[in-house]
């Protein structure tokens, strides 16, 4: 195990002090640059290609009116949605993995993704709802699943193995429910539902991403600034965190609530994009080599991963676009297998 990099401190004469890890900040910054850079490439690609310089100029408000329509009305919403979904999933995944002290603690495995799917299927199959209703169904389904898992795991059990096991059980039930709902659907509805369940960014406009952007703007600072340090203490175990003065149940409730909300709104915006929440925090940790939840690097890594996956989905097979969820599933599954193999080699599992 390599040494964790040292922390740096900023102090002011007034007695204020900030402690941070330069390496973690650098990783976050690099991920952010990659995410934004890929975003610019994405905006410039398509049936009407533009150079990155043109894209940047148009984004700055100095492009031709035609460019402006294509960039700001059509392609930017999709990229912004991708960035926001990736950041939300990366952040939520980091919170879940830290709270359950397990790299498998991701919304894919804890049942929240399946719950969002159930919400969407219910809306599409039983009520024939449109895309706005489907998004509401995703958010509602994810939140309802969060409440069920919370209630079953119990106030004192909402962490560690118990949450993982309850989540796996709930996920299994919901997968069954989702399968049943699909068999009951008209063929057109079923096709729509399956596409949605794969996770896709096609045809996103500002209305699709607005709820998620608001959730990120509110919950991001709340989690990063308000609860990040408490989350680090919770990793020492409940008793130790308690002894250090963390109000553990309140902190955990806020963090779990924020993570479930972020996952649900991300699913509402782009469908249940798989594996980003699982891989982004792990990749971020390996790059920062810093113990702890690594919330900010994980969020930036998630954004970079999702935009890169969308780029691959659009460009990897010429003339044949894939839903972004297919790419993240393929990459994420491969990564999971690699993780299991290397962890096994180092003897950790």
């Amino acid at each position: 195990m390599s040494r964790s990099p040292r922390a740096a401190v900023l102090r002011t004469p007034a007695g204020l002090s900030l402690r941070f890890r330069p390496r973690a900040l650098a990783v976050a910054a690099v991920c952010l640059v990659v995410a934004l850079g890929t975003g610019v490439l994405l905006i410039g690609s398509g049936d009407f290609p533009m150079s990155p310089a043109d894209v940047v100029r148009t984004l700055a408000g100095q492009g031709s009116p035609a460019d402006s329509v294509i960039v700001n009305e059509i392609r930017l919403p999709r990229v912004v949605t991708a960035l926001a979904v990736g950041a939300a999933l990366g952040l939520a995944g980091a919170i879940f993995q830290s709270l359950v002290r397990n790299p498998l603690g991701s919304p894919d495995i804890l049942g929240f993704t399946q719950g969002a799917g159930t919400g969407v299927l219910t809306v599409i199959v039983l009520f024939g709802g449109g895309s706005a209703a489907a998004a509401a169904g995703a958010a509602g389904g994810g939140l309802a699943t969060g409440l069920v898992v919370w209630a079953v795991a119990g106030r004192h059990g909402a962490h560690g193995q118990r949450l993982v096991l309850v989540g796996i059980g709930v996920a299994a039930i919901l997968t069954g429910v989702n399968g049943y709902l699909l068999t009951q659907a008209q063929i057109v509805d079923a096709a729509r539902a399956v596409l949605w369940l794969t996770g896709s960014l096609d045809g996103r406009d500002w209305a699709d991403s607005a709820p998620l952007l608001i959730a990120l703007a509110v919950l991001g600072p709340l989690v990063l600034v308000g609860c990040g340090r408490a989350l680090r203490m919770l990793e020492l175990g409940d008793d130790a965190a308690h002894a250090l003065g963390v109000p553990i149940e309140r902190a955990r409730l806020i963090l779990l609530g924020a993570a479930v909300l972020l996952t649900s709104f991300a699913a509402a915006a782009a469908g249940p994009v798989s594996f980003v929440a699982l891989t982004a925090p792990q990749l971020a940790r390996r790059l920062t080599r810093t113990p702890g939840p690594n919330l900010l690097p994980a969020a930036c890594m998630g954004a970079a991963l999702l935009v890169a996956a969308d780029w691959a989905a659009q460009r990897a097979f010429t003339g044949h676009q894939l839903p972004v969820g297919v790419v993240t599933g393929l990459l994420g599954g491969g990564y999971l297998v690699w993780l299991l193999v290397t962890e096994r080699k180092t003897g950790r599992i």
């Binding site: 390599s2 964790s4 020492l236 130790a240 308690h242 002894a243 702890g292």
Partner: peptide
């Protein structure tokens, strides 16, 4: 202060941290 019976050292954390 309390030293609990079981505590978890986060993976890779240094003594000083």
């Amino acid at each position: 202060g309390l030293l609990p019976q079981t505590s978890i050292a986060p993976e890779g954390i240094s003594v000083a941290d």
